Computed example of a mutant assay.
Amino acid sequence: MKIVVDRARCTGLGICESFAPEVFEVDDNGDLVLSSETVPDGLESEVEQAVTGCPTEALRLEQ
C-alpha cells in the first residue's frame, strides 16, 4: 500500500509519528517526512492507526 500525504491539510501535529515513528517524522520545520512511501512489512496496523488518527485527514492509503 502507498501512503499519500495531503500537504495542504497536514499541520505537523505529529500524531502519526506517535503511532508509527518508524514511518512518520515531523522535522524541525513542522513538515512531515516519510521514511517510506509504501507501508513497510509488519507496520500495517501502526500506519493504519496513524491514518485514522490524523485529525486533519491529511493521510490516506492507496492500493
Rank of each mutant, 00 (worst) to 15 (best):
V47K: 02
C54D: 08
T38C: 06
E62Q: 13
A20R: 01
G30H: 12
L13S: 05
L43G: 03
F24L: 09
A58T: 10
C16F: 13
G42P: 08
A8F: 11
D31L: 14
V39E: 03
S36D: 13
E48V: 08
D6L: 09
T38R: 07
L61D: 07
V26Q: 07
A50V: 07
V26N: 07
E57S: 13
P40D: 03
D28G: 07
L34E: 14
T38Q: 11
Q49K: 11
G53Q: 10
F24Q: 01
E44H: 06
G12M: 01
G42H: 10
V51I: 08
V33S: 00
V4M: 03
A50S: 08
R9L: 15
F24E: 02
K2Q: 10
V33R: 12
V26C: 05
V47W: 00
E48F: 04
T11K: 15
T52K: 07
L34Y: 15
R7Q: 11
S35D: 11
R7D: 13
A8L: 13
K2F: 03
V5L: 14
L13H: 15
E25C: 11
G42C: 09
V51A: 00
E25T: 14
S36P: 08
R60T: 10
A58G: 15
G14P: 14
A50L: 13
S36I: 06
C10M: 08
G53K: 09
R9H: 08
M1R: 02
F24N: 01
I3A: 05
S45I: 09
R60K: 15
P21W: 02
